[in-house]
């Protein structure tokens, strides 16, 4: 269900930028913290894309690990579990360097006439 909402948002974003041209590839960056199941997202993407310029497009996902950096001691690490206390000093001033992304990076469109319609 999470992936359905995201797939709908991704198709809308791609359609907006496709400007009516058929979309061949939608490339996304997805951080580990977003809890997205790639196969599930591809499944819903295919369904939501039907009857839009994204129909038949390949959804290309780049998965990014959670990477943290401690503001107190500078330690950088990639935790297996979503634990946000510094593993070296126990500090709470921990910044997420990567792992929160949920962005459409780019699309590849075919240059020919077509009309964009939103997902149903």
């Amino acid at each position: 269900m999470h992936e359905l909402s995201i797939a709908t948002a991704v198709v809308n974003t791609a359609c907006k930028h496709a400007d009516g041209r058929p979309v061949a590839v939608v490339s996304m960056r997805v951080g580990a913290l977003r809890g997205v199941v790639p196969d599930s997202l591809r499944f819903y993407f295919e369904i939501v894309a039907r009857d839009t310029v994204c129909e038949g497009a390949v959804l290309d996902l780049t998965e990014l690990d959670l990477e943290l950096r401690c503001g107190d001691c500078g330690c950088r690490w990639s935790p297996d579990l979503p634990i946000f206390r510094c593993r070296a000093c126990g500090g709470a001033d921990v910044a997420i360097e990567s792992g929160e992304e949920l962005e459409v990076d780019y699309i590849e469109v075919s240059e020919q006439e077509a009309q964009c319609i939103g997902p149903r």
Binding site: A9, R21, E103, V104, Y106
Partner: peptide, 17 residues
């Protein structure tokens, strides 16, 4: 027919935000 790459770099939930 040729393919063009369109850079977007946009949060997928941007429209909601």
């Amino acid at each position: 027919m040729h393919r063009t790459k369109v850079r977007i770099v946009e949060d997928a939930l941007d429209a909601n935000n």
